[in-house]
């Protein structure tokens, strides 16, 4: 019997070690897997490479991980925001490395990793600072930049419902990076509001097929929504 459900967030992240690369879903706080991140902080590991759209908002999620000093490098598109103070301080102190990637290239590079592509040619960033030193090519009269896939050891993702095979449905704009990060990471770990019996997710509406998911952990409806 296939059963990808794990009893606790603690058990779900138990093999993430020092120096791991970890994709974290979420756009701002929507879709941010706060409970998995808290469990990762509790493990005490560090020297992590984090891949997320942002570099933390406020005090929770990726911001908490940065605040705790666990992040060596962050790959993201939009670090600087009104509430990114923990990242800002570490970055200015030279304690965290930043790889800035245009948002669509970030998504395309993650998806390319999940799809087994060796590289992609993207028009985004051509002629800008973010393409300096990179190989370019003109194809059918348009200029493209060669960009490589972004792989990761783990992905931490928040979805709405799962079954024990790891099929996922998401909720509203919390979906964002979840489906492509699940594909790209060697081990995709997903927190959900509930795990439902096999066969009860409508197969026409499954967004992430279970083949891309290794672990699911049920937390109950999120505090924010219950409030």
């Amino acid at each position: 019997m296939i059963d990808k459900s794990v009893a606790s967030v603690r058990a779900a992240v138990a093999d993430i070690g020092d120096g791991a690369s970890v994709m974290i879903g979420g756009f701002g706080t929507a879709g941010m897997p706060d409970e998995l991140i808290e469990a990762l902080i509790d493990r005490g590991v560090g020297d992590l490479t984090i891949i997320n759209n942002n570099a933390g908002n406020g005090e929770t999620g990726v911001a908490a991980l940065i605040k705790a000093g666990r992040v060596r490098k962050i790959i993201c598109s939009f670090p600087r925001q009104s509430d990114s103070h923990h990242f800002d301080a570490r970055y200015r102190a030279g304690e965290i490395e930043l790889e800035l990637v245009p948002q669509g290239n970030l998504a395309a590079r993650i998806q390319a990793a999940g799809a087994g592509l060796g590289a992609i040619f993207t028009p985004t960033g051509y002629g800008t600072l973010l393409a300096e030193g990179k190989e370019t090519r003109r194809i059918d009269g348009r200029d493209y930049v060669l960009e490589y896939p972004i792989h990761a050891d783990f992905a931490l993702i928040k979805a709405h419902r799962a079954d024990r095979w790891g099929n996922l449905v998401y909720r509203k704009t919390a979906r964002n990076f979840g489906p492509i990060m699940a594909m790209a990471a060697r081990t995709a770990i997903v927190q959900v509001d509930e795990i439902v019996p096999l066969g009860s997710l409508d197969p026409e509406t499954v967004v992430t097929p279970g083949i891309f998911v290794q672990r699911v952990v049920a937390l109950g409806a999120s505090v924010a929504r219950a409030a």
Binding site: S77, Q103, G104
Partner: peptide, 21 residues
């Protein structure tokens, strides 16, 4: 997306994709 000022933390988001897409 970026003033290029010394000490400024750059952030690009989707600006480059939108502009050319």
């Amino acid at each position: 997306w970026h003033t290029g000022a010394p000490g400024a933390i750059p952030a690009v988001g989707g600006a480059m994709d939108l502009a050319i897409g």
